[in-house]
Design a protein around this nucleic acid. Sequence first.
DNA 1: ATTAGTGCTTGCAAAATGCAATAACAAATA
DNA 2: TATTTGTTATTGCATTTTGCAAGCACTAAT
Lengths: 133, 133
Amino acid sequence: MEKTRSDCPISCSLDVFGDKWSLLIIRDIMLRGKLSYSEFLQSEEKIATNILVNRLSVLEAEQIVSKKVSPTNKSKFIYSLTEKGIDLLPIIIEIMDWGAKYNANCPRRELGKKIKKDKAGAIKEYYEKLRNQ
Amino acid sequence: MEKTRSDCPISCSLDVFGDKWSLLIIRDIMLRGKLSYSEFLQSEEKIATNILVNRLSVLEAEQIVSKKVSPTNKSKFIYSLTEKGIDLLPIIIEIMDWGAKYNANCPRRELGKKIKKDKAGAIKEYYEKLRNQ
DNA sequence: ATTAGTGCTTGCAAAATGCAATAACAAATA
DNA sequence: TATTTGTTATTGCATTTTGCAAGCACTAAT
């Protein structure tokens, strides 16, 4: 990494993923089963290719995602979460919960409803799901 | 607000605070008892004045913070968290926990240790503290 | 041999950020 | 009253990041 602004853990975290795109890529991998560059590009927020390349490389450098050649298609790369990346789950869940609570236009779907009913249970469930893949 | 990128609650949340500075201002109010423009300026990350003004106005427009004239000094403004702002607590806590876990140079202080030992308890405790002020 | 899929680069315009200086205003002080 | 200090905010300018469109390199499939 370049340089940190301070030794505050919040500041250090934001140095890594404090932007409008990084956590959306994490969301795609974590909650939507997306694995590849072209799948990330298709998300409804329409990330630009140069931003996507840049964020993936930062996330890889920070060891939040790992990049491997696809076993089924040698010209394709597969991105997956590392342990450090999986540990972003509670942050993602809390941001989702807050967003759903305060945006009338953000309907809670399956996971959103589960979070509202039993947040700790939802986190636990998804942790297990993520660790076993 | 301008326009949202999608109706995903994570995306909508990041539309509001997905940058390197907004959550640091929230941190200052929430965990460090800072109240005023000049106190925010003093934080070790050294936010620029134009960014600070801009973020405070966005946070106020989003009803995350409220701005009032100081009762003790009529030429001073006091910023405080609204209910919506207080609800950012779990996000702040999770980001702090992740940052402390994965940055060797980010020592856990009081709150950090409390989070590691009993995260749910720490959140509950700070919720009560924030609601009663 | 051509076409389609996949990941990535480049160029350029627009927007955001960083930095330094300074303004507007109120309160305190000389 | 005049001056200084404290507080919030603006401005100008350089730098960096982002957004967008086009295209490149390579592999796989037809």
